Computed example of a mutant assay.
Amino acid sequence: MSLGAIIYLIKENRLQNSIMDLRNINFRNYNQYNRNFFLKGGKNRNFRNIHKVDIVLSLLQNLRNRNYHWENILKTIEKNGKHYPRLTTKIENAYIGINTQKIDLFLSDLIKKELLEYC
């Protein structure tokens, strides 16, 4: 099975809360423009664990696909004088990305969180 198929099955069967507990993850650690909330009805709504797992799974799949197809993951996108990472995902009209310098931190944080959960 491919990573994409596994992620699809996780989301389709709503297993996000069963496989990861990411309530304490702070996406601002990986990019200064990231938010830990989305806007709904004019109010800030914090991401629930299910949203955070969806974001992480999407970022992992994006990272895997770009590496597998030999794409340059170090590229950034410039808009209005600001540099945004190409490794991004969108959920609830909020964009979450990983700076190229923070990819190692992102992956090690995920491994630490999952290892601590099961120990």
Rank of each mutant, 00 (worst) to 15 (best):
L107G: 10
E92P: 00
I98K: 01
K102D: 11
I91H: 02
N93K: 05
G97F: 04
K102E: 12
G97R: 06
F106C: 05
N93Q: 01
G81K: 13
K112T: 14
N99G: 03
K90R: 11
Q101N: 15
Y84S: 05
F106Q: 06
K82F: 13
Y95M: 07
K79L: 14
E78N: 11
K82W: 05
L105F: 13
T100E: 14
I111G: 01
S108E: 14
I103H: 04
I91L: 13
T89F: 01
L107K: 10
E78A: 10
H83A: 11
K82L: 13
Y95T: 09
S108G: 02
L115E: 04
T89H: 02
K102Q: 12
A94Q: 08
L116I: 10
S108K: 15
K112I: 14
S108I: 14
Y84M: 06
T100V: 06
I111S: 12
R86F: 04
L107S: 10
T100Q: 09
L105Y: 10
I111F: 12
E92T: 02
L107F: 11
L87E: 06
E78G: 05
N99P: 03
E78T: 15
N93A: 00
N80Q: 12
T100C: 12
E78P: 03
I111W: 07
H83F: 05
K113C: 07
Y95D: 05
D109T: 01
G81M: 15
T88G: 01
L115P: 00
N93P: 00
K90G: 02
L116D: 13
H83Y: 07
S108Q: 14
G97C: 08
L115A: 06
T89Y: 01
N99C: 12
T100W: 06
G81A: 12
N99Y: 04
K102F: 01
K90C: 07
S108H: 12
P85C: 11
K79I: 15
L87T: 11
L116C: 13
K90T: 12
Q101S: 15
T88S: 09
L110H: 05
Y95N: 09
E114I: 04
E78C: 09
I103C: 03
L87W: 07
K79D: 14
I103D: 03
L116A: 12
E117W: 09
I98S: 03
N99H: 07
A94I: 01
L110D: 09
L115Q: 03
K90W: 11
P85A: 11
L115W: 03
D104P: 00
Y84E: 05
R86T: 10
D104E: 12
K79T: 15
D104M: 08
N99W: 05
E114G: 00
E114P: 00
I96M: 03
